[in-house]
């Protein structure tokens, strides 16, 4: 059974497309990662699913309910955590959860135990009587996650839940998501921290300029680079010149660089790869290393997001 069905979803801001014919189906109980550079349309897609934004075209259905025609039914089914959110001043953690539980019409008799269980789930039991505005950012994120769960939603929409967190807080957040996965929740999660998504997600969708450019399991997406190999080129000096030289070469679909090395997404066979190395050396660059790196999600992301034409 499909938990989320998005068909040709389109959203236009002014003259630019935030989403263009975005189609995606998420099976119930799956953890789906949504990846894309800034402005790719991830937050727009999630806002539409969360009934916070009306699309300009296409349909989005959550749990069999249309997000526009049956917004109230969709809201009962989803737990939404935005990328940026605030908390109320002067409320304690339990009062904060109690407020949202009441907003979801959970009976008053069930709420104290529910709040206690949720705080335990996100490892905040010792902060039950702390004021939420005084909690650390990581704690607030976990509390927000608990807030998403007050009405036991079937689908969780988590927009960058680990953004801005330190490594420990990120690890704690990841653990919470793993627990939710074990609870058989359908989770749509966006993140810039790609290796983490690969660890947590069953499926990955890559968005670029509002379009879906890759979709499938993590293995499928990384394998679907279809002949695009990622080459790591270490040079002793003149990295900017190398990047400029390689940029317009045939077969180069994307590239970036860091101190002393370039990463080139190259669509070509081994012979063409050797030809590229020869041309680089002929230009006088001192190449210390020229090797194909093992494909991972980040490489796939870099490769596919370089292929979209404006």
């Amino acid at each position: 059974m499909n938990a989320v069905e998005i068909k040709q979803l389109t959203k236009i801001y002014g003259s630019s497309y935030a989403l263009r014919d975005f189609t995606l189906t998420i099976e119930a109980g799956r953890v789906y990662g949504l990846i894309g550079p800034n402005g790719a349309g991830k937050t727009t897609a999630m806002s539409i699913l969360a009934t916070l934004l009306a699309p300009d075209g296409g349909t989005a259905v959550v749990g069999g309910h249309d997000v526009i025609k049956e917004a109230a039914a969709v809201r009962r089914l989803i737990g939404y955590m935005p990328d940026f959110f605030g908390v109320y001043d002067g409320l304690k953690a339990t009062e904060y959860l109690d407020f949202y539980a009441a907003a979801y019409r959970i009976p008053i008799s069930k709420r104290p135990q529910l709040c206690q269980d949720l705080l335990e789930l996100v490892n905040l039991s010792d902060k039950a009587d702390s004021y939420v505005d005084l909690l650390s950012r990581g704690m607030k994120q976990r509390l927000a996650m608990a807030r998403c769960l007050v009405h036991d939603p079937a689908v969780l929409i988590l927009d960058e839940p680990a953004s801005g967190l330190d490594p420990r807080a990120r690890a704690e957040m990841k653990e919470v998501i793993r627990q939710l996965r074990r609870m058989n929740k359908t989770i749509l999660i966006s993140s810039h921290i790609l290796p983490e998504l690969a660890e947590m997600c069953d499926n990955i969708a890559i968005l670029e300029q509002g379009r879906l450019v890759a979709n499938g399991t993590v293995e499928e997406v990384t394998a679907a680079r279809q002949g695009v190999r990622v080459l790591k080129v270490d040079v002793a000096e003149k990295l900017p010149e190398l990047l400029e030289y390689v940029r317009h070469k045939t077969g180069v679909v994307n590239l970036d660089g860091d101190a002393g090395w370039a990463r080139i997404s190259f669509a070509g066979n081994k012979t063409e790869q050797g030809q590229l190395l020869r041309e680089i050396m002929d230009q006088g660059f001192s190449v210390l290393e020229f090797a194909e790196v093992k494909g991972n999600l980040e490489d796939a992301f870099m490769a596919v997001t370089g292929e979209v034409e404006v």
Partner: peptide, 13 residues
Amino acid sequence: ERQTLNVLLTTEL
């Protein structure tokens, strides 16, 4: 401004 409105609007209120 406090960025609490969106979350409030996704509840049953």
